[in-house]
Simulated assay, not measured.
Amino acid sequence: MLEEVERWWTRRSWSAADRPPAQLLAAKEATGTTVSVVLPALNEEATVGAIAGTIRRELMTPQCPLVDELVVLDSGSTDRTAAVAAAAGARVVHRDRILPRLPALPGKGEVLWRSLLVTSGDVVCFIDADLRDFSARFVSGIVGPLLTEPDVQFVKAMYDRPLGSATAEGGRVTELVARPLLNLHWPRLAGFVQPLGGEYAARRGLLERLPFPVGYGVELGLLVDALHTVGLDALAQVDVGTRKHRHQDGQALGRMAAAIYRTAQVRLARGHLVRPQLTQYERTADGFTPSTTPVDTEERPPMTAIPEYAARRAA
């Protein structure tokens, strides 16, 4: 690890326990900072209600008003995700109702980008909607440095990721794709434990200046672009414990890896992809059958380039 990264680690890596609720609330009141929490969701009826309910009960009460706004961004669910989230106290917004002049593209990054148009917090906190055994420290932990450290702009959660046994670890795409890419091409980001984690918070003023890859590459893209926009010392990470969630199968992980690699490639050279597709194989009765899917190639521009967003901010 670079000496610069070692120094960064000692200054910008914390535990959620380092900032008790009283300290966070005092800092929030003193600065007047508002906090929005966004849950991107696609067919997550089994888990989204527990997450939203925990945030409402523990972080949106008169005793602990840490979160000002809780929004579930429905990415086209066909189950009861929207109803369950609303019953748990979240405001539910369908992806297609935001910026209707621009047809929505499929992908997580798309809904994160659109969420900036329907939230108002000075700090925006993203939480994946498939987490199990969710704890409010996922929110308070990563929002904390943005309330107490004026120079911090972007905070990632770090955690253990069990894969269903005491020894197996999740984060396979992180270890096989993202971590090698970052260490080789952006070694200043080598200190991030969970660079692809879906739990992170940032100041709106930074997010609105960044492009958003529409698909699986959004986490890597935002992290790399944040580094180049505000510098390493403005980035941080917080240990929130253990993250349990639904794991993807090998085929889905392959598609995720391809999108992440493509996001890295664009940032390395802004080059042209000759064939932005991925072919995978499944064994069938006739032997191995190929299946080809496109790799996410679209990116949304910084939100400050969108007239509707500028008008909303001006109002």
Rank of each mutant, 00 (worst) to 15 (best):
D130V: 00
A168S: 15
K156W: 14
A87C: 03
V139W: 03
G205Y: 01
G197S: 02
R161E: 00
P211K: 09
P145D: 07
R137V: 13
A166G: 14
L116Q: 13
C125R: 01
F212T: 10
A85S: 07
V139N: 04
R188S: 15
D96N: 12
K108F: 10
V92M: 06
S120T: 14
M158I: 04
G198A: 06
F154L: 02
A129P: 04
L181W: 09
E199S: 15
Y216L: 00
G215F: 08
P211A: 06
P145L: 11
I127T: 02
Q153W: 14
D130R: 12
F154H: 02
V118Q: 07
G170P: 04
L206V: 03
I142R: 03
F134A: 08
G197M: 07
Y200Q: 08
G89L: 09
E199F: 01
D122T: 11
L116Y: 10
D133E: 14
R209H: 09
V177R: 00
G215A: 08
Q153E: 15
A88H: 11
G109I: 03
A190V: 01
W113S: 06
V177L: 02
T167D: 12
L99T: 07
R91W: 03
S165C: 05
L184S: 13
P100A: 08
A82H: 09
D128E: 14
D151T: 13
G205E: 14
L182F: 09
T119Q: 11
T167H: 14
E199P: 01
R114F: 09
P213W: 04
D160R: 14
M158L: 05
A85R: 05
H185V: 12
D130T: 02
L131I: 15
G197W: 11
Q194I: 02
R203E: 12
P106K: 12
E169I: 00
Y200K: 12
P150E: 15
V93Y: 09
C125N: 00
A201K: 04
R137D: 13
A178S: 12
S165A: 08
L102V: 15
V118E: 13
E169A: 07
L146V: 11
L117I: 04
G121S: 06
G191P: 05
Y216V: 01
L176C: 10
R114K: 15
G107F: 03
G171M: 02
D160E: 13
S135H: 13
S120Q: 15
A88C: 09
D160Q: 12
A157Q: 05
V118T: 13
R204E: 09
